[in-house]
């Protein structure tokens, strides 16, 4: 770990100003905001992140969860994952989010991890995290991808490129993707709301750039749109052990039912994509159809049609299909 300076930001404006001193807000950033620190500190110890300045934003007033007059929910950037998972509004209107949060990490980590930090979690790809492997385009642009021909059981099958197959590790962001969250960012040029679908980037030729954030941009809150009384949601995560493991495949499903008919469906996948993976293909299959297993299976097929298997992770395609079918079965069953 290299030496760095730590500054406690007294205001959003100060944080933005400090952040804007960096040339990039992506891999290689020399200024990093720190909230819970559960990802950043690890990566600094591993020399994957080498910021010269760390700006502590924990003193900013961004830790509230507020129900807006239009029924949407505003979640502050610094709300801890554990608090959000047990928030009564979340439990009532967005069970998918609570389930996703509680399936992630461990109790200790959830007590520290924050909303904005979770959105910006870095991949668990071994070749990214261990600098003893020289080739990683995400860490060192142009160095190659050691994962494509390497141990890639945990890597992605959707949204990959010949330059990177790293998965996005978050559970929370998958649920927020299915909920069509909007991410509120304040930066040098003022404030903006970004649909979560537009927030993340697939790796393409620049896997080091993971999202649309610019130097100085600070996520201040996330807004979840209002749900209707007919909305149901669920999160299912499949992995080797029962706890404390990243998803091999996960599915966040949000549906509005009209009797037995699916009026609206939102499907997002975790553990299989290079970003939290929204499947509009699956949604199109489901909308207007009765909630029946045959349609769930067709939707699951559609969701994984573009999947590309690698040496060790081909099983994820079938696993993700099963995950979607089961999550839909659960969410549309009488008990849900």
């Amino acid at each position: 770990m290299i030496d760095f300076s730590l500054t406690r930001a007294g205001s959003t404006e100060q944080a933005i100003r400090l952040g804007a001193n960096a040339k990039t807000a992506q891999q290689g950033a020399l200024v990093r905001f720190i909230a819970g620190g559960t990802t950043l500190v690890d990566l600094m110890k591993l020399d994957v992140e080498q910021p010269r300045q760390v700006v502590d934003i924990n003193g900013l007033a961004l830790a509230d969860v507020v129900r807006n007059p239009d029924g949407s929910l505003r979640i502050g950037a610094l709300v801890r994952n554990a608090d959000l998972a047990h928030n009564p509004e979340v439990l009532r209107s967005y069970p998918v989010l609570s389930l996703a949060l509680l399936s992630g990490a461990s109790g200790q980590l959830r007590n520290m991890a924050t909303t904005s930090g979770n959105l910006l979690q870095r991949t668990r790809c071994t070749y990214f995290r261990d600098t003893a492997f020289p080739a990683c385009n995400k860490r060192e642009p142009g160095s190659g991808c050691a994962a494509i021909e390497g141990n890639n059981r945990i890597n992605a099958v959707l949204g990959t490129s010949e330059h990177c197959i790293a998965t996005h590790p978050s559970d929370m962001a998958v649920a927020m993707t299915a909920l069509e969250a909007r991410i509120h960012v304040v930066g040098l040029k003022g404030e903006r709301d970004i649909a979560i679908a537009d927030f993340y980037r697939v790796p393409g030729t620049t896997p080091n750039i993971e999202n649309v954030l610019e130097p100085g941009d600070l996520i201040t809150y996330v807004t979840l749109p209002a749900t209707t009384p007919a909305t149901r949601s669920h999160y299912l995560k499949l992995r080797d052990r029962a706890s404390y493991e990243f998803a091999l495949a996960s599915a966040a499903v949000v549906v509005e039912l009209d009797g037995k008919r699916i009026r609206k469906a939102r499907i997002a996948l975790g553990g299989v994509g290079t970003k939290p993976w929204r499947s509009e293909e699956a949604e199109r299959v489901l909308e207007g159809k009765p909630a029946e297993e045959a349609h769930f299976k067709t939707a699951a097929e559609a969701a994984m049609r573009a999947a590309k298997p690698y040496r060790e992770n081909g099983f994820k395609i079938e696993l993700a299909r099963r995950c979607i079918v089961r999550a839909l079965t659960t969410v549309t069953s009488e008990q849900a």
Partner: peptide, 21 residues
């Protein structure tokens, strides 16, 4: 890793052992 003989799950998150549940 077959090319370098370096372990790729060389930490407690990726080397899976039983958890409480």
């Amino acid at each position: 890793d077959a090319r370098t003989a370096r372990p790729t799950n060389n930490n407690l998150a990726d080397y899976i052992i039983s958890s409480n549940p």
